[in-house]
Design a protein around this nucleic acid. Sequence first.
DNA 1: CCTACCGATCGGTAGG
DNA 2: CCTACCGATCGGTAGG
Lengths: 182, 182
Amino acid sequence: MRATYRALCEHGYAELTMRAIAEEYGKTAAAIHYHYETKDELLVAFLEYLLDQFAEDVREVGTDDPAERLGALLDRLLVERADDYDFMVALLEMRAQAPYEDAIRAQFVHNDEYVRSLVSETIADAMAQGVFADDLDPERATRALMTIVDGARTRFVVYGRQEAMFVAREMAAAYVSGVLEA
Amino acid sequence: MRATYRALCEHGYAELTMRAIAEEYGKTAAAIHYHYETKDELLVAFLEYLLDQFAEDVREVGTDDPAERLGALLDRLLVERADDYDFMVALLEMRAQAPYEDAIRAQFVHNDEYVRSLVSETIADAMAQGVFADDLDPERATRALMTIVDGARTRFVVYGRQEAMFVAREMAAAYVSGVLEA
DNA sequence: CCTACCGATCGGTAGG
DNA sequence: CCTACCGATCGGTAGG
């Protein structure tokens, strides 16, 4: 998985070969086929590995106070990823395969549902405590926030500007205080 | 260019071959090399063709009233693209190459600067008219709106859900009325 | 712009 | 998990 990650970062998905992965692995290409029957199977396993790191990252936010917790979640999703350009590149490379590989799209859908449930429940908690407006649709607000997150990641990778993540964090904060707390 | 577009939509960037493009073109692969020396050169020309369609789309927004014009721009960037899944897929496929091809990244940067200038000037006009708050940073507000736009496009393609575009349009509207007009 | 073809490289496998 | 190798396909070109 780590060898696949390094090979993907170096070559990009379009130029990713079993031989390049094997080189990072320090073994031959045949050795990889011993563990994974096909290239497709390897890449599906790799995406699971990649997305698990995302899920772990947001799952371990331990704050209880809902408003504070929402801020911590947004920090995890935006600020703490601003240092890892390679990771964001790897993510976009895999995302671009979703329209052509159902198994890959399904993994992204599943991961997105998980992250959204964490955010959505936090917003619902804040509403219950009266910190947020009482006429919100938590799922809709969550989708709005995830749109910011995915926009920042895309812009970070395409334009190579880390700043995109901080602009997004500010914007998310403005949305929370300007719309959710209204 | 049209043949390249069709071949890209059908196969994705990673599986895009000169032969597949030639088949859509209705000629042989050698015929393409008569017009473009290399595959890279063809794809750079193709991206210019693709991004020109975007630029044309937003350039022709003719409304004068700044607040109305900003709404029209956002409609062009979000709502009117909600019917063209293939176009958004083609865009993401090319975007994923930006980290590995400087020429491609440069084209995206240039296009983004152009679109942002249109939005930014409209926001500045609205401020001058007193419709928007007088302490805004138009460029910063524009980056925020573009983050929503790019997030929606990415989510539309990755999750295959057109709804992402409409959620983003609502969110952009909430940002305009909740932050810019505040 | 086609026919015919090139060397290089691809994903994958047999046999050990 | 390696050596050795397979058929298929890649981007690109010579000659017309």
